[in-house]
Every structure is written in structure tokens, then in C-alpha cells.
Design a protein around this nucleic acid. Structure first.
Lengths: 245, 245
DNA sequence: CGTAGAGTTGATTGGTCTCAAGATGCGTGG
DNA sequence: CCACGCATCTTGAGACCAATCAACTCTACG
């Protein structure tokens, strides 16, 4: 857990002890945010790059009439918006889901990091490109997949992302999202998410209770979701999907 | 037209004559792609950053059963995927919509550009962040807006993006998309797009015929679409939305 | 002219939403 | 330790938005 980011970047590249130490320093300055509290709101001036050290968060946008769309979930090791501070104001909000440990990284610290650690810079590029790819996949997910496929796909993605940072236990992982969170992320209503989860359970594709998710047959779930893991780009240095942890 | 990218980056920052010359050189090497031809396909190894010099293209993903989602439209001055070459393979395809003039920029050329022209580098960062913001807005659009709002929103976005690169004439612009393209981008069927466009016409919000779009009442359209232009981040250096050319 | 892509229309179906009520779980304070 | 309150989850019935299927028209173009 402590070094989710290192874990994550190593899915892409090899890091030197020096690199790892530099990353470890980032996590050390983390502050704690209580659950369901916003880290930053739409309209505010972005000042820091955020690194999720522990806990879950989400990026969301809202419409004037209250409709809400979660556009991304953040899990430990996720970085958000390399270089945001070039923008004048945030076009979305970021909110904690669980109790959160987050490092606020200043522009100067980021600049120092990227000029002194080329492998990390490479890694952060990869991170940014993967995040963009995830956002595109979400567009596909919401635009084309049925409710059933959509939820299956989201759960799979989250599971695999947690696995790359070492936060799974075999076929299980924590999933602190409410059905309302899942609804806001998939463009469905909470009621329909509820019914669809029941279908997935009935079909033996998921076990989800007490904020814990188990995937008894990941292959079948991937088929049901039409899940193609290529967009997570986990295979750069010979690390493959089925190399569990 | 010739210098859409310069036009676009100046929505964000001031460029020196040197900067502009460097950008002009990029456009000069453009090659021509016929309409409806793919530039690059999912699974291929990305080798170049693409700069759209003239014409329209789209980024799209498909599901095994043929469902297709357009996840982005590219108009002149758009850059795609700064630094893609760090990825092993494409997770999506890019296809020309019209006859296209596109510059393939090598890794070396990109590196040279970013080390020698700091303002351009800044500009490209802004460009990348805006593209990410657009992708998020699409997620919101497809996830939460009704068909009517959704199409209104997309048309508005495209119009405003064309305006920042000087490709509008007052309240009109070219729109070479078919109703099927619009359908694939909005997660609707072509039939429903057709009916919804008729509604928008009936309400006097758009005129769309012969691949030409006119927005007679942009304010009303923005209200109908719940359009908030903040995500386009066009206001960095005092350039505002209503400062039409 | 003949063909193909694009746009249009109508009738019907169906996936998802809405509204409303009830059940379950859990932290908190008396 | 129980009672309460509140968020979360669950269930049912009905309505509606958008999909589906199937013509048909229009236009561009070779």
C-alpha cells in the first residue's frame, strides 16, 4: 500500500533505488481528507498535482439541475493531472470517497522531479496517457455498452487497476463505492444499478457485499463485459495481466 | 486555415515570431489522407504525433460485435496524443472524415520542439489538458444529458472549437459529419439523431443543411444544452468567448 | 440513368427511469 | 445496551425515451 505509485510505474518501467526514494518522499507529505469531502471544486484555481497515497477519490462534474457524472475514480498510486496548474480554473471537482491520504505536489516539486529523474518523467507520461485512455474507454462504456456490460466492465477495470498496485487478494478486493457512486459513474440510476448487480450475482460473475468485491470467474466476466485490457497498457515491460500481483 | 495550430495556441499564450515559424514548419510536411481512410488502427505501434492541418478526423473505438463509439473529433489545429510513442500499441483507431491534411511528427522532432521552444511546450501542455477536459465533458454529455441536450452540446462545442481556429463565418461553420457520425459520437442511433436534429431545427436553435451549420441563437442553444464553456479553457490570456475573431 | 450513401418517416419494442415504499445496516447518544 | 436516525440497499408498478426494423426519398456522382 505504502508505495502504490512505485508499484504502478513499475508496471511500465524499471525504477532505480534513487527513483524509488524520490517517489517515496512524495508520499511522505500526504495529508488526510475525511470521506465525502471535496479536495478541490470546479471554478477554483488548481495549485497542486495530487497523488493518491491511500483511499479512494473521484473526479466528477455536475449540471446546473443537479445531475452528476463521475468521470474518473482514483485509487492509490493514481496521479491526477500532471501540469494542471497551467489552467486558470478547474472544470470539475475532485472528492474523497473514503478517508483519503493525498499528497499535494507543488509546481516546483514537480519540475524538480521531472528534471532530475528521467525514468520517473517517462513513467508519469505513461501514467497520463493511460489515464486518458481510461477516460476514452469510459466514453465507449457509457456510449455503447448495456447496463449489464457497463457495470461488469467498470468493476473489472477497478479490480485490475487495484491489482497493478498490489491491492487485491487473489480474486478479491475492497470496493468502497456505494451503488449511487456506481450509478453516477455509469450514467445509470441507483435503482437500475441495484437490479443489474443482482443479475451479475445471479449469473455467478461477481460477489459484492460489505464493500468487498470478489470475481469468481474473471474470464467469464471479461467476456460478458467485452473487456479488452489493452487500454490499461500494462504490458510494457513484460508484465502481463495474468501475472497476479 | 493554414495556421490553425498557431491560432489555437494563441488562445492560450502569446507566441514569438520564432515560435510561429517553428509551428509553420510542422504544417509544411503534411501529407494528404483521403476521406474515410484510417490514419492508424487499434493494435498498431504508434510512431508519430499527428497534427491536423486541414480537414476533419475522429478517434474511435469498436466493440467485438461492431458497436462503434467516436470518442473525439479532430479539427484543424488539433494535436493528438503528445508522447503517444511511449505506448506499445494503440488502444483505438484514428480515421479521416473528410479529405485530410495531416503532419506526422517524429519523436525526435517533438523533442527538439519542446527543448527549443518553451512557450510552445507550455502551449502543448495546455492543448493536452484541454483535450483531456473535452474527453471528460463527453463522458458527462453521454452519461447525463438527454439526446436533445447531447446533440446541442456537441454542435456547440464543435462550433466554438472551430471559432478558436478561425474556421467560422459569423454564426456559421462547415460541419462535414454525417448523422451516423453524430450518432456514433453521442451514443445514439442515427434514426434518433435525425429526429432530434429536426426538433432542434423546429425550435429555431440550429440550421443544418448541406454540411453547413448555422447557430441563429447561440445563447438559447447554450441554455438548452446546459453548455458551460469553461472546459475549453479559452480565457487564459484575456481571450473571451464572445470576442468573435 | 443507375447505384449507393445519406437522410427521413412510421410502427413497435424494450431498456432504463421514475416514483414510492419498505428493509437493512450501522453509528451515535441517551 | 437499546433506541433512534440516516444512509444504503431493495422491491414493485408504470411511464417514457430511445432502439429496432423496415420502408421510402433524396442527392451526388460515375
Amino acid at each position: 500500500m505504502a508505495q502504490a505509485l512505485t508499484h504502478r510505474l513499475e508496471a511500465f518501467t524499471r525504477l532505480s533505488p534513487d527513483d524509488k526514494e524520490a517517489l517515496a518522499k512524495l508520499s511522505k507529505v500526504a495529508r488526510v481528507v475525511p470521506p465525502r469531502r471535496d479536495l478541490i471544486r470546479e471554478g477554483e484555481k488548481p495549485k497542486f498535482v495530487h497523488l493518491m497515497v491511500d483511499g479512494w477519490a473521484c473526479r466528477y462534474k455536475t449540471l446546473p439541475d443537479g445531475r452528476r457524472q463521475v468521470v474518473a475514480f482514483f485509487v492509490p498510486g493514481d496521479f491526477c493531472d500532471l501540469n494542471v496548474y497551467v489552467l486558470k480554473e478547474m472544470d470539475h471537482s475532485i472528492g474523497a470517497i473514503t478517508r483519503l491520504s493525498v499528497a499535494d505536489i507543488s509546481r516546483d516539486d514537480m519540475d524538480a522531479l521531472t528534471t532530475n529523474y528521467p525514468r520517473i518523467t517517462q513513467g508519469l507520461w505513461w501514467e497520463a496517457l493511460v489515464n486518458a485512455a481510461i477516460q476514452r474507454e469510459w466514453t465507449l462504456n457509457i456510449g455503447q455498452r448495456t447496463a449489464y456490460e457497463r457495470i461488469a466492465h467498470l468493476l473489472l477495470e477497478l479490480f485490475l487497476r487495484l491489482r497493478t498496485v498490489g491491492l487485491t487478494n487473489g480474486i478479491s478486493c475492497d470496493l468502497p463505492l456505494t451503488q449511487t457512486d456506481l450509478a453516477d459513474a455509469t450514467g445509470l440510476t441507483a435503482v437500475h444499478v441495484n437490479r443489474t448487480l443482482q443479475e451479475l450475482r445471479r449469473d455467478g460473475l461477481i460477489v459484492l457485499e460489505k464493500r468487498r468485491l470478489t470475481l469468481p470467474d474473471i474470464e467469464a466476466l471479461m467476456t460478458a463485459a467485452m473487456f479488452n485490457p489493452n487500454y490499461l497498457h500494462l504490458d510494457h515491460e513484460g508484465r502481463y495481466l495474468d501475472s497476479n500481483q
